[in-house]
């Protein structure tokens, strides 16, 4: 097990300089080493072929991987998909997948996780987290959990959040205020770390070589 892919791959693309190796480039850009990236490629292949075998993760395939149901829409999963899809073409390519997951690595710095979480909460991408966005997320969470809160309770918990996070008192939370807020409340980033990412080669022991695909896909 381990990096047999790398060895075969290095033979296949031996004429390339090391810095042109797409897996090596991803390893430099992310918290993953080359062996991790090979293991992630197995997961990517599985997800990207689960509905249409086209080497790209569609939103339906992402939902299928996440919830076991391709039709299960979820505001937060939508936001994560959109942030992973940095090329904004409606699908996640392998490089986007690896760079996105890197933020969730146990070794990724907390400010990086906080910045990603900020973008998740900034639904309309205004550069601020605003009250109506927080309300929308609360309503989505309640619906997902089949819970019912009165409007007064919702207003109360939004007020409390802004009381604690909106230090300037201008009714919106900017990235600096958010960084300070999560530093005081690290539990808010509980889902920004995926323990599985620490030991990927144990998770995906059996992978096959597909070097041409991985190279084309990253580029």
């Amino acid at each position: 097990m381990g990096c047999s892919f790398s060895k075969q791959r290095q033979r296949l693309i031996g004429h390339h300089k090391q810095e042109e190796d797409p897996a090596a480039v991803l390893a430099v850009q992310t918290c993953f080493d080359i062996c991790d990236i090979e293991a992630l490629y197995e997961l990517f292949k599985k997800l990207s072929s689960s509905i249409v075998d086209d080497g790209l993760i569609s939103k339906e395939e992402f939902q299928l991987g996440l919830f076991g149901n391709s039709k299960k829409r979820n505001l937060f999963a939508d936001r994560i998909f959109d942030l992973f899809d940095s090329g904004k073409d409606g699908v996640i390519e392998f490089g986007e997948f690896v760079r996105g997951l890197s933020v969730f690595h146990p070794a990724a710095p907390q400010p990086q996780k906080a910045a990603f979480a900020f973008r998740l909460h900034d639904i309309r991408q205004s550069g601020f987290i605003e009250r109506d966005e927080v309300r929308e997320m609360i309503v989505a969470l309640l619906s997902e959990s089949q819970l019912v809160f009165s409007d007064d309770i919702i207003q109360l918990i939004i007020d409390k959040a802004f009381q604690e996070a909106d230090l300037k008192g201008d009714g919106k939370i900017d990235p600096d205020e958010w960084q300070q807020f999560v530093a005081r409340n690290p539990s808010l980033l509980r889902n920004m770390t995926i323990p599985h990412l620490k030991d990927l080669n144990k998770e995906f022991r059996n992978f096959e070589l597909s070097p041409d695909f991985i190279e084309d896909d990253i580029r």
């Binding site: 919830f67 505001l75 937060f76 969470l141 918990i157 539990s187 808010l188």
Partner: peptide, 24 residues
């Protein structure tokens, strides 16, 4: 301390990517 809005939001299943690593 009581929960604020962001505590509650952080419990969404959609935020929990560990599902991608589990067999369905």
């Amino acid at each position: 301390a009581s929960l604020n809005a962001f505590d509650i939001i952080s419990f969404s299943k959609g935020f929990d990517l560990s599902g991608l690593f589990e067999e369905k």
